[in-house]
């Protein structure tokens, strides 16, 4: 489960690539990259739990909606996150996520970027021999 931020890909924004042997691992990596973009997870306590399920018709749309949902929760509940657990039903293209985190507290958390949206800018998701790979640009 890995991700890497791309330095020069998006002038004004955040770009990352994420990989995983399975869709579950890919979603975990991409979700972790998004969580890291919002706040340093090590500074966020596990005080609250949020769960959601998304279902789409393609792996590309599913990952997009999954990341979009995390951004939505950040604003709706005023939260940042410590950790993420995700399950992906590859056959039915459904993802179920469980996030642990806390209400935003500038005093105790290292807050980073107020991510506005997942974009379709050079967005892609690919299945390779070793597994899945995606590239995501976040608007900040």
């Amino acid at each position: 489960m890995t991700f890497k931020f791309l330095e020069e890909f998006a002038t004004a924004d955040i770009a990352f690539i994420a990989e995983g042997k399975t869709l579950k691992e890919l979603f975990q990596s991409a979700g972790d990259a998004l969580i890291e973009s919002l706040a340093n997870p090590k500074t966020v306590k596990k005080e609250l739990t949020r769960e959601f399920t998304v279902k789409e018709n393609t792996p590309e749309d599913l990952l997009f909606s999954f990341l979009e949902e995390i951004i939505y929760l950040k604003d709706k509940d005023g939260m940042v996150f410590n950790s993420l657990e995700v399950e992906v039903d590859e056959k039915n293209l459904q993802a179920r996520a469980k996030l642990k985190g806390a209400h935003i507290d500038p005093e105790t958390q290292e807050l980073r970027n107020d991510v506005k949206a997942v974009t379709m800018h050079y967005y892609k998701i690919e299945k390779e021999d070793e597994g899945w790979k995606t590239r995501v640009v976040l608007d900040v």
């Binding site: 791309l6 330095e7 020069e8 890909f9 002038t11 004004a12």
Partner: peptide
């Protein structure tokens, strides 16, 4: 208008 990425600036 930006000329440098956010990551580059932080570096």
């Amino acid at each position: 208008g930006r000329t440098m990425s956010r990551t580059q600036a932080k570096k």
